[in-house]
Design a protein around this nucleic acid. Structure first.
Lengths: 195, 195
DNA sequence: GTCGCAATGTTTATGCTGTTAACATGCCGA
DNA sequence: TCGGCATGTTAACAGCATAAACATTGCGAC
């Protein structure tokens, strides 16, 4: 029973792009990264299985969305790093930026970390996911003060990443209410010293 | 078609307990907290819908499992706090303990934080989930050195919690490989100072 | 220009899921 | 002993991801 509008052409035009666009839109307005292929197809005015012409399966769609999200996050962090100067204040600013982005894109952040875990970075498409991922890591490493001892920089980067990511997750999971001032305060409590 | 063993009695005996037990067992051996009601019932030698006599829905079962997990985690943290002395080393030890528990119980940790977010702590069963939760928070607050200024203690507790939780999540999500020495090093980088 | 093929979309079907309703069984107290 | 309530079963529904077979269309080669 084709209850599709009579004017709608048989071919959509650019279903893949439209799907990713609507998918991102959805993720931007949801708390959890719950996407249904059927529901998505329905709202695209297309049959339930049409998306399989563009993605081998649901995970591939989610991976594409996660990749886009990862790129946005990486870009966002790079900008923040560039804008903020060095020193403790700059460090805090970049950290706050990470948390803020997470709060504003909860479903996307969750999807990114959820999907990344499933991907074998050694074999799967090293140009896309791995690249964007490296970009994020670099942005985080850039938070670390220059005067840090070299052999401590890796640990310091991990420390910073853990701190902001954990804080973000606690907020997203409803454990802690979002309070920019508190976020800044917490991030500022980190004062690296060689031990 | 009743393909259930002929000797099996019509009544199970204590299906609720058995379900929780098998559920916990499952969670202990999985990476992701994926439980299927039907699969669970099948392995309990019971019909697909039998569990609905003991839980109103799937979420209720998951909540019960999350509650049990939360109690275990809280107890674990309390023990670690008691065993470790104060000072930086004690702090680090308790932090490492949190991460270790998370690594050993990935699905359970995920379930806990996932479920807790859905629960309205003000209305839902304040005796159970909220209680166990408060217990965990207390264990974390106990990590904070005594000489800390009072108005900084809340921020310090949040800092500590964020750090270990974030580190745990990064490891569970496959971003960072688990290395106890590295974990200890990262946790030790936190040196609280009044700012 | 038209013919054919590859790309794209649709229908239909399969087996999974959570959940509800109606029915069956058996334990326990009056 | 008997009746009711707790517990379990069967059947059914809607929704999901996915696969196979079929339909339509646009585009490039002749």
């Amino acid at each position: 029973m084709p209850d599709r509008p009579v004017n709608a052409p048989y071919h959509h035009g650019d279903l893949r792009t439209a799907a990713l666009q609507l998918g991102m839109e959805r993720l931007a307005n949801q708390e959890q990264p719950d996407l249904g292929l059927r529901a998505l197809a329905r709202d695209l005015g297309v049959s339930a299985t049409a998306l399989y012409r563009h993605f081998p399966n649901k995970d591939a769609l989610l991976d594409a969305l996660a990749l886009e999200g990862l790129n946005r996050l990486g870009r966002h962090q790079a900008e923040a790093t560039a804008k903020a100067g060095g020193g403790r204040d700059g460090f805090a600013e970049v950290g706050v930026t990470y948390v803020t982005w997470a709060v504003e894109n909860p479903a996307l952040l969750r999807l990114i970390y959820h999907r990344i875990g499933q991907v074998d970075l050694t074999t799967d498409d090293p140009t896309a996911m791995g690249e964007a991922f490296h970009q994020l890591r670099a942005g985080i490493a850039a938070m670390i003060p220059d005067e840090m001892r070299k052999d401590q920089r890796a640990a310091a980067a991990l420390h910073a990443w853990s701190l902001v990511h954990g804080l973000a997750m606690l907020i997203l999971d409803g454990q802690v209410e979002y309070d920019p001032a508190m976020v800044r305060k917490v991030v500022l409590m980190t004062d690296f010293k060689d031990s």
